[in-house]
Nucleic acid binder design. Structure first.
Length: 565
RNA sequence: UGGGGUGUAGCCAAGUGGCUAAGGCACCGGGUUUUGAUCCCGGCAUUCGUAGGUUCGAGUCCUACCGCCCCAGCCA
């Protein structure tokens, strides 16, 4: 895979990479420095993967570096367990911050000094208004705000007050430090924004050293500056914040001034992306945790069986822009198929077993048949699968009264057992009361071992199977999309949870798979032929007793025909 | 109604005034195939939110209008 081909036009650059390439060409910086700045208050999801791939990808492509910086300025929400999981997820995705691991909290001392400096140049003041009063003074979208009564405090008084805030002389919420900008600004964020608040909470890194904490807008730009970030990439909702980002750095006359560029966050169909909604799914038991294989969290995707490469490839495919957009879930699904088609060994597994008895096959005889692990990749080798008189096939592969286009088993019809023999259905047994087919009787053609008829007759259908006495019985989770509608949270008046797909996980208990799978290691990815890609669940599998997760089905054009008919 | 963004196919997305508007997903045909998979070939925007204007020439420039998103946390 070529990374990028700047001039050949092989792959057009997104608007951010165009800026970066131009800046590099102009000699603004020898190489870009970016950063991925998560707040450690939750788990990463596919939307974060887009940002990670962008920031770390740019660093890799342009010979720069990307910092991992935790934006931990709100101790009431942040925890160490999140920093650990975020680090693990970034690494799993295939990126490396090397020695550039930072925490905004590492800058608290310097941030405090910058705040005092702002006070000294009369650009910040301590405000005694309550949160509610501040809100009322802020004005509205169309009306200017009004000045705080404390706006004209002397520098000395502000300094003294701010120090007392730091020293714990005032209760939580009683005072804040505000930037002195313009209460009439059309940009509401610029109406004397709060820079520091009093908050007595145990910080996951600084403990109780501080009882005042800087706000995002004050922290982020200065952290970027301190790390010599060249391009500070963030999502669209921070566009207004750029005014304040620039104001802080300009007012403080900092030696460097990173450029903030905003791009559209990722939205996907058939899911929800907000931390709040994901949390709701977990807490209300709709899924079994943050790493539930149906969750589009990085840990959920990992457990489902998605490969890091497929997620990176997905992020490449969707592009970077400034337009609010919804990516089809099928694009993600296609990305794993594409990767796994290349790499996943093929095996046979029957999800819904139906017994087949080959009437003319000698009782007690067992043959070892040769199967390829990947039809297009002989280098993946071969394996042997046992064959005997009694087999399991997929219940869907038999119909008592099949339509003409059904290329599988039915009375009088001949099919090929993959890597086995051609068999013809002679009869079937049925449960009298339910009408359910309980077994199918066939005869085999002994001259067709391996699947080809010496007389050259063509058999259209090939089905998978497992020898009944040799089969390994196991549990398979058939995962599907978590929601039944494209935009579960589109309607604000309807709870998004009413759209949950009740069949998003179907737990199949007695699936029959090839005996060789008894030794499959957790996280192994396989293709069950004609079914889909599956992975060995790392949480539920036991030695010799694997549990499989369906990652994604194979494309199924028969399903379409069936639906249309 | 203030400010900031954004509109190219069903969904993404190239296009940076000049040959017939890239590419991917989805979809529809056809071929190969011991996975109804993969793979391969072909189709899929007389038109770029709308209306005017500038120009020999406009998706690209100008004007107006329309739609959608974000901003009134001591969250990030």
């Amino acid at each position: 895979m070529k990374e990028l081909e700047t001039d050949s036009g092989a792959k057009p650059l997104d608007f951010i990479r165009q800026i970066i390439a131009q800046d590099q060409k102009d000699g603004k910086h020898p190489a870009p420095t970016t950063r991925f700045p998560p707040e450690p208050n939750g788990f990463l999801h596919i939307g974060h993967a887009k940002s990670i791939c962008l920031n770390f990808g740019i660093a890799r492509e342009y010979g720069g570096r990307c910092h991992l910086r935790f934006d931990d300025t709100n101790p009431s929400k942040e925890e160490t367990k999140y920093v650990d999981s975020i680090k693990a997820d970034v690494q799993w995705l295939g990126f490396n911050w090397q020695e550039h691991l930072y925490f905004a909290s590492d800058y608290f001392d310097r941030l405090y000094e910058f705040a005092e400096q702002l006070i000294r140049i009369n650009k910040a003041y301590v405000c005694d208004l309550s949160a509610d009063e501040i809100r009322r003074h802020r004005g509205t979208l169309t009306e200017a705000g009004t000045d705080s009564p404390n706006r004209d405090r002397s520098i000395e008084e502000n300094l003294a007050l701010f120090r007392r805030m730091r020293d714990g002389d005032f209760p939580d919420g009683s005072r804040v430090l505000r930037a002195k900008i313009d209460m009439a600004s059309p940009v509401i964020l610029m109406r004397d924004p709060v820079l520091y608040r009093i908050l007595r909470a145990d910080h996951h890194r600084t403990g109780n050293k501080w009882c005042i904490y800087p706000m995002y807008d004050f922290t982020h730009c200065l952290s970027d500056m301190l790390e010599n970030i060249t391009h500070s990439l963030c999502t669209l909702e921070f566009q207004d914040n750029r005014s304040l980002y620039d104001w802080v750095l300009e007012t403080l006359e900092t030696p460097c001034h990173p450029r903030q560029i905003e791009f559209a966050r990722l939205n996907m169909t058939y899911t929800v992306m907000s931390k709040r909604k994901l949390l709701q799914l977990v807490e209300e038991g709709f899924v079994e945790g943050w790493d539930d294989p149906r969750m589009l969290t990085i840990s959920g995707l990992r457990r489902r069986g998605y490969t890091p490469k497929s997620i990176r490839s997905f992020c490449e495919q969707i592009g970077i822009g400034k337009k609010e957009s919804w990516i089809d879930m099928s694009v993600l699904e296609n990305a794993v198929r594409e990767d796994l088609n290349e790499t996943a060994p093929r095996v046979m597994g029957v999800l819904d077993p139906l017994k087949v008895i080959i009437d003319n096959y000698p009782e007690g005889l067992v043959e070892e048949l040769v199967a390829q692990n990947h039809p297009q990749k002989p280098e993946l080798g071969i394996r042997s699968v046992p064959f005997s008189r009694e087999l399991y096939i997929e219940r869907d592969d038999f119909m008592a009264e099949p339509p003409r286009k059904f290329f599988r088993l039915g009375p009088g019809r001949e099919v090929r057992l993959r890597y086995g023999y051609l068999i013809t259905c002679v009869s079937f047994d049925q449960d009298e009361s339910s009408g359910m087919v309980t077994a199918v009787h066939c005869t085999y053609d002994p001259d067709t071992k391996g699947g080809n008829a010496p007389d050259g007759r063509k058999v259209k259908g090939t089905i998978h199977w497992v020898s009944a006495p040799h089969a390994l019985s196991c549990t398979v989770n058939l995962y599907d999309r978590l929601f039944t509608v494209e935009h579960p949270d589109a309607d604000k008046d309807v709870d998004f949870k009413v759209h949950i797909n009740r069949d998003s996980r179907i737990k199949k208990e007695n699936c029959m798979v090839e005996p060789s799978l008894a030794g499959a290691e957790p996280a192994t990815r396989l293709q069950f032929e004609r079914q889909g890609y599956f992975s060995v669940d790392s949480a539920q599998s036991l030695p010799g007793k694997p549990v499989f997760n369906r990652i994604v089905t194979l494309r199924d054009s028969w399903a379409k025909i069936e639906k249309g008919a």
